[in-house]
């Protein structure tokens, strides 16, 4: 579940209240107030979505769609909850839908991966890009829901509860999907980089 608003005056609390004020303005008809929410949360959401897509154009498409959809469903937002998790939930589910569609169409394009792997400036850079490419490939081979759990946990560092809330699944499902995603990822990475200490399961 989304975090309820803290009672103390933390930065997050202040930010939340600002969000709620802007949401209220939008609901009252001041559409332009939504721009503030977009400006504040768009960049963060963009970073999250970049973990789901290799192509920046896809990121942009989903980001825009998510922001528009959030606007259209703003009356469903619960002001007692934080705004960004609600927005992220919309965006992540849109991303998953898109990835599911592509998976069904067997759209596996390595162009973006190859592009991302190119242009390395140093050995360390090259290694980082190599790992990134391998992880991306491995995540692409996973069921989108598993990959999403892994991304949200490992890249977004969400708690299990936050992941469950974002994906609308029970906590147990998050645990099992994450464990299975890790297992599959370990296998894929072992094939790419060789078995690690302790072996793979």
């Amino acid at each position: 579940m989304d975090k309820p608003v803290a009672s103390e005056n933390t930065d997050a609390d202040v930010a939340h209240r600002q969000d709620v004020e802007w949401v209220r303005s939008v609901r009252q008809g001041d559409t332009s107030a939504y721009a503030y929410l977009v400006d504040r949360h768009g960049p963060v959401l963009h970073r999250t979505l970049r973990r789901f897509f290799r192509d920046d154009a896809d990121v942009e498409d989903v980001l825009q769609e998510a922001l528009v959809r959030a606007f259209k469903n703003l009356d469903r937002y619960d002001p007692t909850r934080e705004f960004y998790p609600w927005l992220r939930k919309i965006a992540v589910n849109l991303a998953l839908n898109e990835l599911d569609k592509r998976k069904r169409r067997h759209e596996v394009s390595d162009e973006a991966l190859a592009e991302r792997a190119s242009g390395a400036n140093s050995d360390a850079d090259l290694r980082a890009r190599e790992v990134q490419t391998a992880v991306d490939r491995a995540l692409d081979d996973l069921p989108p829901a598993w990959a999403a759990v892994f991304r949200l946990r490992n890249f977004e560092e969400l708690s299990y509860a936050e992941i469950a809330a974002t994906l609308d699944v029970p906590m147990g499902t998050v645990m099992s999907q994450l464990a299975r995603a890790r297992a599959r990822l370990a296998e894929a990475l072992a094939q790419t980089f060789g078995p690690r200490e302790g072996g793979t399961p």
Partner: peptide
């Protein structure tokens, strides 16, 4: 740790 080293270089 491998995933953590997979920094998005874009």
């Amino acid at each position: 740790s491998v995933a953590a080293s997979s920094v998005d270089t874009r």
